[in-house]
């Protein structure tokens, strides 16, 4: 039998935890990078104009779906990212029950509930120069007047499609990238951040 603990995160092969321990305190590095810990990710599609659908989702998640494009909604241990007018990404602590509950609650509502937890790596990017690093590969306007904590966007970063979620105004970002592109994007981020000083931080929360 395979050891279930042999589950590997998308960037496991880079040995980031060991590197983080070795490099120690982030010090005055302008950019901190981490691989964010595993979360349950569910792709949700449905009709946002359908009240019953919205209610069912709110009942299970404890938070309503963000109706405004490129925004997020946060509830107890769960964040919902707007991906399209009928598409959202539900991100929660690893919790199989919630997925099943969502499937059950939405049956008959013309919705689609698809688990995609393994589809994407999530890279945490923070630090004083985090925005500059993104500006090197992302055409979005990330100035605080245009993009703040709580905003998200599907866009291109370098040559990879990403979901960019600003989680804090420090600034802090979570970058969702397709698993197969994760190694490329991590390498790109480290390279782009080089001039500011990079520290790999442990996968905290």
């Amino acid at each position: 039998m395979a050891d279930p603990f042999q589950w590997q995160s998308p960037l496991a092969h880079l040995g980031l935890a060991a590197r983080s321990n070795r490099e120690g305190d982030p010090g005055d590095a302008g950019v901190h990078l981490s691989e964010r810990p595993a979360r349950t990710q569910v792709n949700l599609r449905g009709d946002s104009a359908d009240d019953a659908f919205n209610e069912a989702v709110t009942m299970v998640l404890g938070v309503g779906l963000p109706a405004r494009p490129n925004t997020t909604a946060a509830g107890e241990g769960v964040t919902v990212l707007w991906l399209g007018p009928d598409e959202w990404l539900v991100v929660a602590a690893p919790d199989v029950d919630r997925l099943a509950a969502l499937e059950t609650a939405l049956a008959g509502h013309g919705a689609a509930v698809t688990e995609v937890s393994e589809s994407r790596a999530v890279i945490g990017l923070t630090g004083a120069n985090a925005r500059e690093v993104l500006m090197k590969g992302c055409a979005l306007d990330l100035h605080p007047r245009a993009f703040r904590a709580g905003r998200c966007a599907q866009t291109l970063l370098a040559r990879a499609g990403v979901i960019l979620h600003q989680t804090g105004n420090e600034p802090a970002y979570d970058i969702y990238v397709a698993r197969s592109f994760a190694d490329y994007l991590w390498t790109w981020l480290e390279d782009a951040a080089g001039e500011y000083g990079v520290r790999v931080t442990g996968a905290d929360t």
Partner: peptide, 19 residues
Amino acid sequence: AGRDIGPLADPVRRTPMHH
């Protein structure tokens, strides 16, 4: 070209078993 050179010239997609 910027930093789109060498190993970053184009994304390399890897499967979970790549290594």
